[in-house]
Computed example of a mutant assay.
Amino acid sequence: MDEIEDICGIRIICYFQNDIEKIKEIILKEFDVTENQSKQELLNATEFGYRSTHFIAKIKESWTSTPNYRGLNNLKFEIQVRTILMHSWAEIEHKLAYKSEVDIPKDLRRKFSFISAVLEDADIKFEEIKNSINENKKKLIEKARIDKKFDDSVDLNLDNLQAFLDYTFDNRRKDINATQRLLAEMMLNKISLADLNDGYMKYKNILEKIESELNKKTTEKVFWAQVGITRKLMELISDKYFSKRQHHPNADIVKRYKQRLNSPK
């Protein structure tokens, strides 16, 4: 029993290869790691197969001062970290009961190796796509800060819309799933990125006044997330969009400001 190192364990499955390094840093910080091995590093340059990072660890001595962990300081456990594509290959291999290369019939080894290579390449490609998305957002935001205005000539898509929100409302909570729903609303109501950009430049002070007015009406502080304040902006700039949202709480405040904006000077 003292020699068993995986009597208990956990498997962490992430999306991207770069996430493995982040998880590795946390594991090395939080536990006493006695063994740390990347199975991929054991493969030759021309080999493709099982890829996963394994840790053999123990809880830190300081943990044993609490009742929950008392007496567990000598317990070793295994942590496996892999991407979802690494996991797919390993699970299918396990399902077919192949534990090592010698278990695989010779005529199937090439196919197994090929599938592993394809999935490894896909892992690399997904990482490249993620990095490209982040780099594009970074460039758009940096350009906007220099120009003092977001470049609304770019295509309206999820990544560019999120870059716009990160630039205009950088201090507000963001949620990419909420941004996706917002994009669908913009497409449905024919609201462009240029419409948002121009509206923000005209009405950013009014948005702050609406939010401030709401705070006077309620004991709970109102501080919209990125998508929430953008919806208020869309209500100000689009009569079509506002007509669909008149039943929403506090629509009367937005209506009053819209009337002021549309009234003759």
Rank of each mutant, 00 (worst) to 15 (best):
F242I: 06
K202M: 14
L165C: 10
A178M: 14
V227A: 03
K232T: 04
A163P: 15
L165W: 06
K139Q: 08
S192R: 11
K149N: 11
Y167R: 11
Y167A: 10
W224A: 06
D159W: 12
K202Q: 14
R245A: 01
D175N: 14
A163G: 13
K130Y: 05
K138R: 15
N157A: 04
L188H: 09
K216A: 03
L182M: 15
Q246E: 14
D151G: 14
K190L: 10
K204W: 06
Q162K: 11
Y200M: 09
I229F: 01
A163Y: 13
F150T: 05
N215W: 01
W224E: 03
E142K: 13
T168L: 12
I191D: 09
R245L: 01
N189K: 09
M187C: 08
V154F: 09
K221N: 02
A184G: 15
I133S: 09
N171V: 09
N136Y: 11
K221V: 01
N205I: 09
N136T: 14
I237C: 03
D155A: 12
D147H: 14
T218W: 03
R245F: 00
L207C: 06
D198T: 07
P249G: 05
D159S: 14
T179F: 02
Y167P: 12
S132T: 03
Y203S: 11
K139S: 06
D175H: 02
Y200G: 11
R181N: 15
D152F: 02
I237Q: 03
N197A: 11
V227M: 01
F150C: 05
R181Q: 14
T230K: 00
D239A: 11
T219I: 07
K232N: 05
M234D: 01
F164M: 13
D155T: 13
D152M: 01
L182Q: 15
K138W: 07
L188W: 04
K204G: 04
T230Y: 00
D151K: 13
N131C: 11
H247W: 01
R172G: 04
A225R: 00
K130F: 02
A144W: 10
N215F: 02
D152K: 02
M201R: 11
N177I: 07
L196V: 07
Y203D: 08
S238T: 04
F164Q: 13
S153V: 03
N177C: 04
A251K: 07
K240H: 13
K202W: 07
D175K: 04
Y200T: 08
E235K: 06
E235R: 07
T179A: 12
I176T: 09
R181D: 13
R245K: 07
N171R: 12
R172K: 08
R173K: 09
D159Y: 11
D239T: 12
R173N: 04
M201Y: 06
K209T: 04
L140Q: 12
K143T: 10
I146H: 12
K148G: 13
T230F: 00
G228M: 03
A251E: 05
K190S: 15
R145Q: 14
K138P: 06
E213P: 06
K204A: 10
R172D: 02
R231M: 01
L214D: 02
E185G: 03
A144S: 12
F223I: 06
N160F: 07
D195H: 10
K216C: 07
N250T: 00
V227S: 01
E135C: 11
A225Q: 00
